[in-house]
Design a protein around this nucleic acid. Sequence first.
DNA 1: CTGTTCTCCTGTGGGC
DNA 2: TGCCCACAGGAGAACA
Length: 273
Amino acid sequence: MPELPEVETTLRGIAPHITGKTIHRVHIRQPKLRWLVPENLSETLCHQVILSCSRRAKYLILQFEHGIVLIHLGMSGSLRIFTPDNVPLAGKHDHIDFECADGTVLRYHDPRRFGAVLWYAGAAEHHHLLQSLAPEPLSDEFNIAYLTPLLNARRQPIKTVLMDNKIVVGVGNIYANESLFLSGITPQRPANQLNATEIAQLIHNIKQVLQRAIECGGSTLRDFVDSNGKSGYFQQEYRVYGRHNQPCLQCGMPIHKIVIAQRASFYCANCQK
DNA sequence: CTGTTCTCCTGTGGGC
DNA sequence: TGCCCACAGGAGAACA
């Protein structure tokens, strides 16, 4: 499931291969993603140059002269680059090909189709999906002065609040669990009960764990080119996520699994208070 | 405004 | 070995 580090790694993996290139056509095999892929996307993008590639939250943004293509990988989406004359036949869930004039193909693959590929004839910051997003977790804007009043206004479990895009973007289920473990904070604690030290710890650990995962992704960048995609994303070592009943890596006590707001939550009752 | 529930979809894995 | 089915999960949308 692509979390922010995977999306960032995807961006770095594809950007050098498509930036500055001209779209020749777009093949849409399955338009029914989270939202319908615009039917006329190929006509819209034909002869248009990909000016730049960027990321906001877990959205990838391809910048064109007259608008943007917005890509979200949902939870099973991936992007691959195929070099000219090296493009394999499309597989079952290869829903969209962006074909460049030089033959390079950017292929969107998404078995569960929770992702999105959209066109917006305007600036990225004006798109309704992007304009009300909270700060990036790795930015300086995401700091103690910013977060403290927002947490104090919430009674929900801290884990739920961390996953709220109005508080901070890009912290999904896995990294919410991981950063709370690293901070010694139990996921069900009401957000307004965290003290200043804990908030500082949490911010530090969110940045740390995301940054580390992005650095791990750096060694897999070649996987985005001419790969069959089966290797998938890098395997991150998780400290609590998915470790139900396994010994805590700090104290050896079994890891608990509970459901908070319909999401699997893992924690050590001994290390996290 | 906060908070909760529903929804999209298919691969996986447990139960039998 | 095969069938059935609950389940996971990002995050917007709808609603209380």
